[in-house]
Each structure stands twice: as structure tokens, then as C-alpha cells.
Amino acid sequence: MATTETMNGQEQHPHEMTEYNGTHRLFMQSMLSHRILEESQAEVIYEKICDMLNADKADFGDFVAVINKEISDVDLALRRTVDEYNSSAIIALVNTRGDEVAQLATTYTANEIGFFKRVLELIVTADDEAFSLGSMAAIREGPKLKPAFSQRETEELLNKLVADKWLMRRRDGYYVLHMRSIIELQNYLKETFENEIHECLMCMEIVTVGERCSQGRCEVRLHTHCAAGYFPEQDNGSEIKCPTCGTTWARDNTIGTIRQ
């Protein structure tokens, strides 16, 4: 087996950190297998790769930038964002070409995609911006389809969607969108559910877990972590207000969180 340096017929120059080399290649294999990772895990993997290949460790952001420059040709990108559910930094391998849902067709049948779309709809349009779907309600959807899935098939399909990181099963048993769906299917979600999907006023990304303005007609939504950064510490006694309409902001007016 040729070493990674000679695979391109190129030497690896210590001063050219921007060259796409064996570390990038192996990291791409890792991302192809994981699809989405906490950034802290991704950095551990990157360190491990550098150790293994005896390469100097670059700044992780620069390292990702080198990869993105190279893989954009094949409509792939590494995207760094924040996990809505636990506010940790994450990195995902995403398709950048349109018709995102159609790309699911590489691993799912048309009927399975039909079911997934229905589940997406039920999650996104859930009452009171709950952005979740009870497991019994999800299982009941399978037999309603044409052609119908049996209850067992529906459960298997839901498990597969969870394993593939399209859906997530919350600790209360409800299905919610996995961050992978929120990142990879964002255009589909925005276009299909124009009225239900909001973008966070702070970071402009889709928000399905966070806080909302108490003024019913105001569209302002903030991620939990974005709101925490925006609003001052509460103990100084001053009232906090919606940045757009000025209505008093109630930090407990949340969306997409577990309802008691």
C-alpha cells in the first residue's frame, strides 16, 4: 500500500498546511461513517489521525476549511453549528445540492420516504410549537399509508430513521427532528412549512427548540443558547423585552421542549 504522501505523487511540505493530504482523507472517511458528530469528538478524532499519520495538528477550523474547499465540487460540505437540544458545537457532513429529500432515496424506498415526510409534517405542525410526535401517534401513521406498513414494519422503520440520525427519540419517548434533519433538510423544511419553521433572530438558523415572543403575532424565536447569550443575567431586576416588538419577554415561554 502506498503511503498517503505518495498517493498524489506529492511530498508533504511542512509549510503548506493548506494542502489536502492523508489527514483530510481519513477525516472524510470518518465523517462519511458518522455523518454528524459533536465537535469535541471530531477534534479527538482529528488528533488521533494526526498522531497516527505523524502529521502536525492544524487549527481545527483551518483543517475543516481545507476540506470544504476540496469537497465542494462533489456537492458535499462540512457544516459547523450548534446542537439545539444540548447547545454543544457539532459538525455534520451535508449535501449541498437541492432536492435533499430525494437524496434519501439512496437508502430508503419511495414508500419509506413517504412515511418519513408524514412524520416530519406531524412533528413540524404539532400544536403549540411542540416540534415533537408521540411514539404511539407515530406508529399509528404506518398502517394509514397506501400501501400500508404493518405496525411492526412501522416500528422497524422508525428505528432505522433513528439509527440513521434523521429522527431522535427524546427521553420522554417523543420523536423529534435529529440535528441531521435540521441541517440537511433545511431548505425542504423552510419551503414546505413556511408558516411553522422560524429562523432564530440571532443566528438565522432554523429553530425548533428555544424561546418565543409572548406577542402572538410576533415571529421572533431564539435558540435556547442564543437567548442565553442575548439576555443579560436575570438577577439585575430589569425587565427583558423582545428585540423586535418590545413586548416583555418571558424566558419560560419555550418551544420544542418537554411539556410537563
Partner: peptide
């Protein structure tokens, strides 16, 4: 996969 076998490390590649 044509990378050397030892790079197929479970801590890097997820199965």
C-alpha cells in the same frame, strides 16, 4: 477503501 488497513480504526471510522 485503499487507505492502509491500520487506519481503519474503530475510534476513527464508525461501524
Amino acid at each position: 477503501n485503499i487507505l492502509p488497513e491500520e487506519q481503519n480504526d474503530p475510534q476513527i471510522i464508525h461501524h
